[in-house]
Design a binder for these strands. Sequence first.
DNA 1: CGGAATGTTGATTATATTCAACTGTTGTGG
DNA 2: CCACAACAGTTGAATATAATCAACATTCCG
Lengths: 247, 247
Amino acid sequence: MQARPRPKTPTAPAQARDLRVLEGVINGLPAFRQLSRADQAMLANHAQLREVRRAAAIVRRGERMPGLVALAYGSAKLALRRPSGEEKVVRIIGPGECFGLASSLLDRPCPVDLVALTDCLLATVPPVPLLRLLEGNAAFARNVARLLAERMLELLSELEASAQHSGLQRLACYLDSLAQPGEPPGGAWIVRLPATKTTVAARLGVKKETLSRMLRQLAADGVVQVAGREIAVLDRATLARLAGAHG
Amino acid sequence: MQARPRPKTPTAPAQARDLRVLEGVINGLPAFRQLSRADQAMLANHAQLREVRRAAAIVRRGERMPGLVALAYGSAKLALRRPSGEEKVVRIIGPGECFGLASSLLDRPCPVDLVALTDCLLATVPPVPLLRLLEGNAAFARNVARLLAERMLELLSELEASAQHSGLQRLACYLDSLAQPGEPPGGAWIVRLPATKTTVAARLGVKKETLSRMLRQLAADGVVQVAGREIAVLDRATLARLAGAHG
DNA sequence: CGGAATGTTGATTATATTCAACTGTTGTGG
DNA sequence: CCACAACAGTTGAATATAATCAACATTCCG
């Protein structure tokens, strides 16, 4: 914890003020925002701060969950790996997001690999204080119930996406969901891929070669314009049409 | 194929004793079993009993959720339908199981089609009493949280299954999970498909033709023996091997 | 600079779908 | 009771889709 943060990281040395940082991170999570400062402090007291390097495994599938993992900065992927080497990325999480609520509450082994996509700072809240809070704080229990319900529905729409067979449909749907209005007003929409194309491909359930070909196709049709990880959506209507029904 | 107990008059006329039957059904659900009799009675008072015919739509996707739907008898499928007509079956539920907890709690539109596979009797508990209980009963809130957490992990393993690309892998995995020890002790294991092969195929994410071919393949290899909806697993080791890694 | 990771492209191949024809089962009404 | 319609399942041939293999280009970092 005295290890100096990477010189690239512009923020102040995080580890020096564990509790401060922890409380900040915890307060930033939707799951905990409504808690009293006392409860938040209790969680922070039991939580741990951890820095991990790009490509490091944060939790491995099958391991006991160390608790709820919250990202202060950086990004990580939740991935399922087949022995054959192929992997399916379930979700990509960024700063302020967390992972492992369900498994922690039930004390079940981690159902996926959690792998850092960039250097990360993360907070880990062990199951015990979570369960204590769940027992003693009805509002928290309600909150957790609502949160899990939302996550469930998200996961379901994830499953739905993976069910629509055409890779192109899934890509169109994905781009559409990530599109942000570009800075020149009426112009094109912008998508910044949250990870390498290889990882995004795994997230979409296709190989990187296929993703490459699909993007080329879309570009040739004038629907998008690709520049590395930046994608400009030129024709959002067509994109939406592709995402909806079979194109 | 098999004699389904026709609900000519199932046991006793169900609608005549709404409250009795409702309390019975509600008490049978894991979500509600631990409630006091008073709370159960409250739920029963607000709940409704409904008989539906085979193939009838119980709730349509996008409709407002009428509440938690619990099956007293019969079975139903949760299905996602693409405009193109193809459908993906997410889950098949049987007696004692329920559906729609997450959507009801959040008052979100129903994310799937719920369709009766056989004639059914079902109880519907509207969102309002559910939410009231969630507010007033901390133990219930904790219970709901745990239940949703479990459902989440199930859904995740569902997603995992749909990610392993080989249809044969998914079939092997599915059969393995349904295999029951056959009645002659050391003999073969038995699987009774919970629905028509067409529906099971949709559950596995393949067309009925493909399922038929895969089963023929497995039978030719001496792994299973198929007789209508009954499947005898002759070589469970091989089945498990197929389910695990690429076969 | 140089090496590793990432991404692209073409040729080939595996897998499952689609189309189509046919069989078998089940329930209904003449 | 039989005929028939509707549905469920099987099988083969042609086809579509994405994976795999292989070579090459590019970008990222130390």
